[in-house]
Amino acid sequence: MTQLKKSFPYLVSVLAAFLIVGILLWALKFNPLKAYETILFTSFRTPNGFIQTLLKWIPLTLTALAFTVPLSSGKFNIGAEGQLLVGAIGAAAMGIIGKDLPMPVLLPLVIVAGTLAGAFWGLISAWLLYQFNINEILSTVLLNFISFALVDYVATGPWRDPAAGHPTTIQIGQGGFLPMLVSNPPLHSGIILAIIVAAAVYYFTSKTTAGYELVVTGANPRASKVHGIDIRKMFLFSMVIGAAAAGLAGAIEVAGVHHRLIEGLHSNFATLGMIIGLMARGKNSAVPFVAFFIAILEVGGSAMQRTIMVPVQIVLIAEALILIFILLSDIIKRRQK
């Protein structure tokens, strides 16, 4: 009963968002029912659709965790985009430099290099916060811009692939490719990494004392400090862990999908990650599920564009509306008290 009661606002939010989108589609002279059907069922109709959904789910889950883990301690990491890109740069660089290494050596190196590079990018903001109390929202956002320039620099520099018409590096060594779990349609093994990370984050925040300290810091930093918790260390730590997750997402995009660094590879994962994090109300354990739902919408949205020519932005509107309604439901709940 309580479970049903809890999920009620979510259900209503989704329904209301779809209703509004439906009206919009109808006004644009599309068939809303057909659009709904495409959005919701593409993922489950064909093996390809399902695997596409899983492939979206990987970076979405990781970038959402990049947002929610720092949020557990009360800090806002808006820089998952930059951390993902720097992670991708790190992974590509390692894959190109060590391109002749055998897979058992190169693959772990690529993944670790990407993760550490992302963590380092987050560490800059975290350290500025720790040392000088510089607002992390500002520093993470600003570092995003620097990361775009860095990608351009690397993708147009000595490693540039002259055959490509778009800023792109040459391919990383074969040993750095993530092995495929299913070859046709292709599903790479990055999904295992994402599942492990999501499970580890859940275990860490709910079962360990360090995770407890993280959560209570987020609940009331001042009271946590009064009771002996080093909250500044918690801020630093959570920011770096979050950034590492984003870096891993970048590494997986390189090692699993593109096999090279491509400008624009970050797509809108980080923004969606934040939306997912907010829909999950910052709850790490809910992130994988919300991410899966958003992945369905994303895949369905692309399919809708292809089959019935509805612009894919409609799905973004739907996602934004769902979030707005969920946040509204909080306010309504508070008013009722």
Binding site: Y212, V215, V216, A219, N220, R222, A223, S224, V226
Partner: peptide, 12 residues
């Protein structure tokens, strides 16, 4: 402000 976590459980 100093003694209680409003957003965490009683056990926390």
């Amino acid at each position: 402000a100093d003694g209680f976590l409003n957003k965490a459980s009683v056990a926390h």
